[in-house]
Design a protein around this nucleic acid. Structure first.
Lengths: 145, 145
DNA sequence: GCTTGAACCTCTAGTCGCTACAGGTATTAC
DNA sequence: GTAATACCTGTAGCGACTAGAGGTTCAAGC
């Protein structure tokens, strides 16, 4: 539609959303989603209205993906990003957030481990008859104590 | 609006949705939700259009809640309920479902444990300076390998 | 019988973190 | 020039609930 301007004046390092997604280990839909919820700033567009990303954006998204892989919620990541953007502030807050998250992970592990033990025990007691005699069903059918 | 019929002809054991929820450890909204998605049969209504539950319904919901507490998905519970409704069938299928679920729980535990270890290590390395030097931020900022 | 407040009703929308689709436009390679 | 691919927006869906609005019914006290 518009005539092409031969070269981006700023930098050749800019990439499209697909490449950004590939580099940071997620999908283009996810990138647009992050932009929509304000986790990523609105990306500048080229003449054809397509998003172009700088190395800084790539780093930011990689950070987000790492944090998500660590199990941080989007809200926690928002807080982390504020700190990333203010590198001279003390890191106590980062530490507190990480510790809080660790405590949650540990509690999830504890609950799942208890569940696993109960489940293992329940399965081990199944003698292999009909559903009528099934220990698993029996356990699940117990009224609340 | 209508005149009251002094007593339910069938049974005095029927309860309202609030009492059912209390007895089985969930909320009335959840009960209605379970009915809507077909996990619970449509409850019979009294003259005022309110749901009345028999002990059988209480047992069924208790079973569902137990299974949810065990981490079974609604779909898995649907399968379990079919088996509960056919008590003379062999319990192999129940066993298989439980074992499959156990494997999933174990994999979740493994992933969370790995995460916990990484997180612990990362936190331990935080020297307590500014965000600029924070090891946690640093780890999260690493590019994909 | 009347009134009050709790419990109930339906319907709709929100949660979280994406994912998938429909229907269109831009870019790129040949 | 054309075809394949990548991109765009907007909307709806997932799972398993949860919350709210706005109305009705029930149970208990007076």
């Amino acid at each position: 539609m518009k005539e092409q301007i031969p070269q981006q004046s700023i930098s050749e390092q800019q990439v499209g959303i697909g490449e950004l997604a590939r580099l940071s280990g997620c999908k283009p839909e996810t990138v647009r989603y992050y932009e929509r919820i304000g986790l990523l700033p609105s990306a500048p567009r080229n003449q054809g209205n397509q998003r172009r990303y700088t190395p800084a954006a790539i780093r930011r998204l990689t950070f987000i993906r790492h944090a998500r892989d660590f199990g941080f919620s989007v809200d926690a990541i928002r807080e982390l990003l504020v700190m990333v953007d203010h590198p001279s502030m003390p890191c106590q807050q980062v530490d507190a957030l990480a510790r809080h998250h660790l405590a949650e992970v540990e509690s999830r592990i504890a609950r799942l481990t208890a569940l696993r033990d109960e489940l293992t025990q329940t399965i081990d007691q199944c003698a292999g008859g009909s559903v009528k005699q099934c220990h698993i069903i029996e356990v699940l059918s117990e009224p609340l104590h």
